[in-house]
Amino acid sequence: MSPRVLVVEDESLIAMLVEDGLETLGYEVVGPVGTVDAALRIVEQTPFDLALLDINLGGKQSFPIAEALESRGIPYVFLTGYDRSSLPLAFQHRFGLQKPFRMSALQQALEKLQGSKRGGNAPAHRPTLGQ
């Protein structure tokens, strides 16, 4: 069974690119969704394994989503235009990728997330995306 990844991104072009990349890598995409409220509903109602969060969603920050994921033990990272130092200290360990990013970097971030969910085990082999 493919890992399910929640994609929270309000920029439709970026959301489509991430969705396509994830599907190419063999992941199942949940969403994408572009608002805090929609993402929180999915967190409450839909099972998934990992999450990718943009920080700024139409002027609202996604930190309530991150808190909900933390409370459920669901691994996630931020995909953002901000740098690590602009995140609140409580979330800096969840900095993932700064936009723009390469799909190969996204693949590495997901493998790291999967490893953290498994307790550090190596991820299953997945196809590699080109640079």
Rank of each mutant, 00 (worst) to 15 (best):
R41Q: 15
V5G: 14
A68L: 03
R94E: 03
A122P: 09
P75V: 14
S85H: 12
F63E: 00
G130K: 14
I42A: 02
Q92N: 07
I65A: 00
P47L: 03
A38R: 00
G120I: 09
Q61E: 13
D54P: 02
A15C: 02
R84P: 06
G31D: 00
Q45A: 08
P88T: 13
F48K: 11
R84D: 06
E23Y: 05
A66W: 00
L53W: 04
E111H: 15
G81T: 11
T24C: 04
F95C: 10
F91V: 05
Q114I: 15
L50M: 13
I65G: 00
R84E: 15
L69N: 04
R94G: 03
F95T: 06
Q98E: 15
S62W: 02
E67P: 02
D54H: 03
A68W: 01
E23T: 12
L22Q: 08
I74F: 06
G34E: 02
L79A: 11
S104L: 06
P32L: 07
D83W: 10
D10M: 04
F78S: 08
G21N: 11
N56Q: 14
L110V: 11
A51F: 00
F63N: 00
A109P: 04
S116P: 01
R118A: 15
E70S: 03
Q92W: 07
V18T: 13
I65Y: 00
L87T: 12
L52G: 05
G26P: 14
E19W: 00
P123Y: 10
R118K: 15
Q131W: 09
E28I: 05
D20H: 08
M103Y: 14
T24A: 08
P123R: 13
D54Q: 04
Y76V: 01
L79N: 11
L97M: 10
L25P: 07
S71W: 02
V7T: 11
L50V: 13
F95M: 07
I42D: 00
D49K: 12
T128M: 08
R84W: 09
Y82R: 08
S86H: 14
L87I: 12
A66M: 08
V29E: 05
G34K: 06
L57H: 05
R41E: 05
V29D: 07
D20C: 08
T24E: 13
Q61M: 10
H125T: 12
Q114G: 14
A38N: 04
D37V: 10
L25K: 06
L53N: 03
L110F: 13
H125D: 11
G119R: 13
T80E: 12
G119K: 14
K60H: 11
A68K: 02
L6R: 07
G81E: 13
L57K: 05
L22S: 07
L79S: 09
I65L: 02
Q131P: 08
E23H: 10
K117N: 11
R4Q: 15
E23Q: 15
P100Y: 08
G21Q: 12
L57I: 05
A66P: 04
S104Q: 11
L53G: 05
S71Y: 01
R94A: 15
N56H: 13
A109C: 12
E111I: 10
K117I: 09
D10I: 01
V29W: 05
D37S: 11
L6F: 09
T128P: 02
L52A: 10
G26Q: 13
K60L: 03
I74E: 04
L87R: 07
M16L: 14
F78G: 03
L79F: 09
I65T: 01
K112R: 13
Q108C: 06
F48M: 06
E11H: 07
L97H: 06
